[in-house]
C-alpha cells in the first residue's frame, strides 16, 4: 500500500520538481565600492550589501549548474530588473535585453524606444527592464557557470 502511494505520488508530481534537482540557479547581490588608497590608486571592492543607498552600484551574480546526468538544452536565464535599479552593464557577456517589460528582446544597441511624440530613439541602459542570456550550446552534465550584470540604485 505504501509502495503504491509513492508510485502514485511520483506520477502526479510535475516535471519541474525533478528539474529543480537537475538545474540550480543561485542569485547573489553585492555592492561595488571604489576606494582610493593613499597612493591615489583606485580599488574596486565587492561588499555584502549591508548598507545600500541611491547611487550605489550593485553587482548581481547568477551561478548556474547542471547537476543532472544529462545535458540541458535551450538553456535561458532571465532576470527582470527590480524597479529601483537602473541597468548599467553586463560586462562582456552581451546579454539580450528588453526595454518593454519582456515583450521584445535584442541587443541593447539594436533596440529602440518609442517616445510620446511617436518618434523612436536608440535604447539606453536606463530603459532596460529585463536581461536574458540564451545559451547556444547545451549545458553538459555537471557543468556550471557564472553570469553577472551591474545596476545602479535609482
Amino acid at each position: 500500500m505504501r509502495r503504491l502511494f509513492l508510485i502514485l505520488a511520483a506520477a502526479i508530481l510535475p516535471g519541474q520538481a525533478l528539474a529543480a534537482n537537475q538545474v540550480a540557479l543561485d542569485n547573489s547581490v553585492f555592492v561595488e565600492r571604489v576606494t582610493t588608497d593613499a597612493n591615489g590608486k583606485q580599488r574596486v571592492k565587492l561588499e555584502e550589501p549591508k548598507v545600500v543607498v541611491p547611487g550605489d552600484k550593485l553587482v548581481f551574480v547568477l551561478n548556474y549548474r547542471n547537476a543532472s546526468a544529462q545535458p540541458v538544452d535551450k538553456f535561458v536565464i532571465t532576470n527582470p530588473l527590480p524597479d529601483a535599479v537602473r541597468y548599467a552593464d553586463a560586462g562582456d557577456s552581451r546579454p539580450l535585453v528588453s526595454v518593454d517589460g519582456g515583450k521584445a528582446w535584442g541587443l541593447l544597441t539594436d533596440l529602440t524606444v518609442r517616445q510620446p511624440d511617436g518618434t523612436t530613439r536608440p535604447a539606453q541602459p536606463a530603459d532596460v527592464t529585463h536581461i536574458r542570456w540564451a545559451f547556444q550550446q547545451p549545458i553538459p552534465a555537471g557543468a556550471s557557470g557564472k553570469l553577472m550584470f551591474r545596476g545602479i540604485v535609482k
Binding site: 538545474v23 548581481f60 538544452d73 535551450k74 536565464i77 532571465t78 535599479v85 540604485v153
Partner: peptide
Amino acid sequence: ISNTASASFDTG
C-alpha cells in the same frame, strides 16, 4: 529591492 532570476531549459 527584490531580485529573482529564472532559468528555462529542456532536458528532452
